[in-house]
Amino acid sequence: MEIPYNEELRPDTGLYNAKLGIWLFLASEVMLFGGLFSAYIMLRLSDPNWASYGQDALNVPLATLNTTVLITSSITMVMSWVSLKLNDVKKYKLYMGLTLLCSFGFLIIKYIEYSSKFSHGLFPSTNNFLAVYFVLTGLHMLHVIGGIVVNGYFFGPGLKMWNTEPERFTNRIEVAGLYWHFVDLVWIFLFPALYLL
């Protein structure tokens, strides 16, 4: 028994199964972050004390750096997929390695930010702005960690599929890439919404 359209495209839909699957997953992720963002909006609009919650305590330069790091990782992610399309595994390993490096870089910068907040006595329970900040960026960070696990697998042990089913492996990288771009996109919304506005 072989499930059809695992790697080849179904003619009438023009999709392989996993691609449709990841788009559906991302749709549900949009609803998750949509819920989180609308909660943020509602809390902020209904709270007269919001201005006193110390949004300026956040470190904008560090977050800008983090935005750059994450966007770079998205570019290298595309490059790793393109390299596979061009049959160049060496380049794939290079770009995937860079993607992973950037992801770890993001986590380290985030760690610095978090620990400086904690050392100043700023916790999620302090006020609702910090609660929103920690929960939204924390959930985003969990998504980054999830991406590292998946990409790390394709960088290491998962790569052996390239030798047996190169087409399918390339699809896997495309799907992982779609997820990674989504994680990047969420940050691009989080950054202005939390740090700048």
Binding site: A27, S28, E29, M31, L32, G35, A39, P124, V135, L139
Partner: peptide, 23 residues
């Protein structure tokens, strides 16, 4: 697929309210 995630967001908020003392 589309209606459950906002409840997941809400469940996380409520967990934080209960465990981390957020409001």
């Amino acid at each position: 697929l589309l209606a459950f995630p906002p409840l997941e967001a809400a469940a996380i908020f409520q967990l934080m309210d209960r465990l981390a003392g957020t409001s």
